[in-house]
Write a protein that binds this DNA or RNA. Structure first.
Lengths: 195, 195
DNA sequence: CTTTTGTTTAACAAATTTGTCAAACTAAAA
DNA sequence: TTTTAGTTTGACAAATTTGTTAAACAAAAG
């Protein structure tokens, strides 16, 4: 079937992505998605057949997009420290845009590990962890289980975004102030990682 | 209305708590909750009138319980370093039992910040942050925005539990191995915080 | 033993959400 | 302009989830 491309299909997908990942409405109904997109609800079925298919499509594209972005950083041939600085920058930028994306991916993985865990990234992870170990031997990094290093790094980057609403209240900050705090974190994380 | 206490009400609440916080099934239906508890679905309505009320009750109790546990640690009059060691221990123990609790609290807060953000904990947070600043002045802690210190601390403790399914796959670990990794983190976080 | 009262159950009703279909619409092709 | 084919819409049907009710049941009180 050829297409006239009114942009509606993409609009629905983008709107769903925004609801899911930017607003955290992981269980938005087709009606809510359609309303947010300003289109008739039936169009969700017309373009995606079912809510589940739309769901899976948005999820898969988001996951793959995110993973690709990170892979580029990991596979780049820059010096380790620069790579990490780059990773922090990219990761925080992406996460600021879609704070709930990782949470969504995790929730989804948890719901069905079998499906999403299959084509695992063992090799790439292992490769990076070897790089980490090299740096530890060189003395650039504090010696520890490289898996702990990975956990530290990603925790420091990701978690403040997941808990943003909580911390805005606790610290009495508005959105803008919190964004500044997150911007400042780039340098801070770098310094925490490389003492 | 007096009660004969067959333990059913508590059973339903406990089961819901387990589904929500231990298994991450944040949107379990009344049927799923009843099945998991091994009781008739109608009993959910009998004891709690509606799903929402059960939901709110479990949520509130869980939140308050967790906050109380943390408050005890924060308000204890031990030396700072010991307090932190204690916090790490308690926090990780609680989180290991109910990995999804915080995520649940955050999601819920995000859905309705007005309700849950009201009776804020400004004072207690401020008090602890002053304590943190003292330690920075004494040189025990690396100098930084105390809010960043808080973010670091809680990120390092909480996030590896939220992302457990993901990391088990990435690292190729089973539940037991991951639990050991989490146990080892206690000391590691302590060392990361106090370099 | 009978009554009382709280508990449990199944059947039913209501509400919500999702999916289907035919008709109306619109822009490009003939 | 008419035709064609993709798009949009509203009405309807199906599926899922939730809430209610009356009757069955069980344990304590009389």
């Amino acid at each position: 079937m050829s297409t006239r491309d009114t942009g509606t299909e993409q609009l629905i997908k983008d709107t769903a992505k925004h609801l899911f990942f930017a607003e955290g409405k992981l269980h938005a109904t087709t009606q809510e998605i359609a309303d947010a997109a300003g289109v008739n609800r039936t169009l969700v079925n017309y373009y995606f057949r079912s809510r589940d298919i739309l769901f899976d499509q948005v999820f898969t594209e988001a996951q793959e997009g995110f993973v690709c972005t990170l892979d580029e950083v990991f596979e780049s041939k820059m010096p380790f420290k620069e790579k990490i600085r780059n990773l922090i920058s990219v990761f925080i930028k992406e996460t600021a845009q879609y704070p709930f994306r990782q949470l969504f991916i995790i929730t989804e993985m948890n719901r069905n590990v079998d499906i999403h865990g299959k084509k695992s990234r063992h090799k790439k992870v292992k490769l990076f962890m070897e790089e980490v170990e090299d740096e530890m031997n060189k003395g650039t990094l504090k010696k520890m289980d490289p898996r702990q290093f990975m956990l530290n790094l990603f925790s420091l980057m990701a978690h403040p975004f997941l808990t943003a609403p909580l911390h805005k209240v606790l610290f009495g900050m508005n959105d803008e102030e919190y964004a500044t705090l997150m911007e400042d974190r780039k340098q801070l994380i770098y310094e925490t990682i490389f003492p």
